[in-house]
Amino acid sequence: MDRFVFLLSAGLARGAVLALFALSLVIVWRTARVVNFAQAAMAVAAVYAAFAVTAATGSYWAGLLTGLAAGALLGAIVERGLMRRLPAHAPLPGIIVAIGLVMVLQAGLAIAFGPEHRPMQPPFSQRPFIIGGIPVLSPYDLFTLGAAAAVMAALALLFNRSSLGLRLRAAAFAPETARLLGVRVPRMITLGWALSCAAASLAALLLVPTELGLNPHAVDLLFVNAFAVAVIGGLDSPAGALVAGIGVGLLVSLVTGYASASAAPLAVLALMTLVLLVRPGGLFAPKEARTA
């Protein structure tokens, strides 16, 4: 029972990061109808920027802000410079360009910074609180959960309650109509990309201090799992990303703890296959008519 509680709490923090990254994929899918396969590479580039600033100033928070800004900027640049030039409503070119971008960014980072792991220090202790003899969440885990929850809540407010959110959604779902109604659709799409990449960068910034260190591939596994999460939850559904993110985080933690680390990727694959067999559009799939 102790072990179960411990594994649950460990999985919760990982799940929050997963959910946040998956949410970033959902945002870009909703605004631009593209799955951004380059999300991990762009996020890791932003983390390098954060790392450089933290190293120069000694302040974690300056680095964090730089990372978020770099992520948003990179998202906007990629949308303006590349994605906009692609034919609309064909998913393939977007995916292929994103794959090309992954290769360029990761190879470029490896050439610029070398393959070494660069350890990053978390801003809070990773020493868990001991409750009833069981180590549960650490202060850093709480920070991760808090940051992820705050960002998700802010995004939900933005999309559902503000007029900017309304315009963002209109630009995504009915670009022609939105244009006629005076929404600057291209600007909205750029904004969606910027928001999405900033969220992904935050997830990466939260993850890397718990890993061995920063390297060009540090976020790869997070992306793969987060993509699985987004697909399981339904690419159109922020709620799906949240639920599936926590779910997959717990699943990976429990499978690793009770079975073996090797079985974790297989468990994710099995869950994804199962969900897609029952609901081909993911758990929180919208009505069919919304197909792009």
Binding site: R3, A10, L221, A261, A264
Partner: peptide, 20 residues
Amino acid sequence: VQVYSTSAEDLTAQMGAMMA
């Protein structure tokens, strides 16, 4: 006996199990 995979840079579950 616990195992880990190099692709997942996280030993929290394994260490927790060994401690328990």
